[in-house]
Design a protein around this nucleic acid. Structure first.
Lengths: 185, 185
DNA sequence: GGAAAAGTAAACCGATCGGTATACAAAAGT
DNA sequence: ACTTTTGTATACCGATCGGTTTACTTTTCC
């Protein structure tokens, strides 16, 4: 693995665990086993490293989701999205959504980090719409939006309160309802 | 208004707009029209001011919600929660949920800020359960959890992508479905 | 009216922030 | 072989961080 990939990897982990402002470049270079000078060769600023970490997480997340959903029959894939989230929020390393966390720290809509996060969510929503269409659901676009909101809610609720069984159950019950009847309204 | 209330007020606004780590005590005292010395008389540390701001926001939010829901007939109050969120996320000052933002920056479950946020969400959930029970919904606890997840999802989705009409519509459609038929499963 | 409390203004503390500079050692490319 | 690139190690930069201190002025209250 190249030094720059190693750096992005480390940055992703540290930013995710500790937050962005709470992670300094000193720690990033130390933990990434690279000198500050080398870090600044590849990334002109800390912001650039933040953006690279977000891009990497985007690719990683979409890849994991697609792998999770692939073995399921087409009709079960929309609800499978919620199962994917349910499994994720129960992992001990879970600390919420990297992109939502980024937006919390970089509030300005013009900030690059915010724009990358918005782009990621837009891509995710369009992927969900595709899953719903392929599943033959009526009002696929609407169901996809509902599925998306449910997923986002489950992620942040479990980030704050932990993976409480009633929350997981509520999410799965809602998704199961849509899968059966094709969405409300 | 006392100096300490003035300070908490300012802190709430600044933390909400800029984030916690991005707001320094220098700015807090300047904008709060108080000397650093005075600030430190009332709050032994910045963390204490963070906690006070969270507590104030908890009271403020629950109060606004109750006021919004009060004029509605009992049966319409659960769905009214979503209307409350819909109206909130469209305000130009909206920057997401203060508590979710706090958890993003103070990730440790042991951190005071995180615990206050979790307590707020627990209180909100129990209030929603009360609304659902009073509305005579079957499976009130389950519907309340679904309502809660939907609201959380709408909040963060609009924080990242802005108040897009399809998102607002999806949330209201989902809530309307529950109000009519008493929840799924 | 006189002490105590609450306030201002501003200098100061060590630590850390993001980022740069200097000096030198391995690789790598041709 | 010789130059360029990539890397290390480390000291340094000005600015800001959270927090303290000193000296002086109100306000409050008995």
């Amino acid at each position: 693995m190249s030094k720059s990939e190693q750096l992005v990897d480390t940055a992703l982990q540290l930013f995710y665990r500790q937050g962005f402002h709470a992670t300094g470049v000193e720690q990033l270079s130390r933990e990434g086993e690279v000198t500050k000078k080398t870090l600044y060769r590849y990334f002109p600023t800390k912001e650039a490293l933040v953006e690279a970490a977000l891009q990497r997480r985007d690719a990683q997340f979409m890849d994991e989701l697609q792998r999770f959903v692939a073995p399921l029959p087409l009709a079960e894939r929309p609800a499978g999205y919620i199962d994917f989230i349910v499994q994720w929020v129960q992992q001990p390393t879970f600390h919420g959504c990297f992109f939502i966390n980024a937006v919390a720290e970089y509030a300005g809509c013009d900030e690059p980090a915010h724009r990358i996060a918005a782009a990621h969510k837009r891509a995710l929503r369009s992927y969900l719409a595709q899953l719903c269409t392929e599943a033959g659901l009526e009002g696929a676009a609407g169901v996809a939006a509902q599925l998306f909101l449910l997923g986002e809610g489950l992620i942040v609720a479990c980030q704050v309160e932990g993976p409480e069984p009633p929350l997981l159950a509520a999410a799965q019950a809602t998704a199961a309802g849509w899968t059966r009847q094709g969405g409300v309204s």
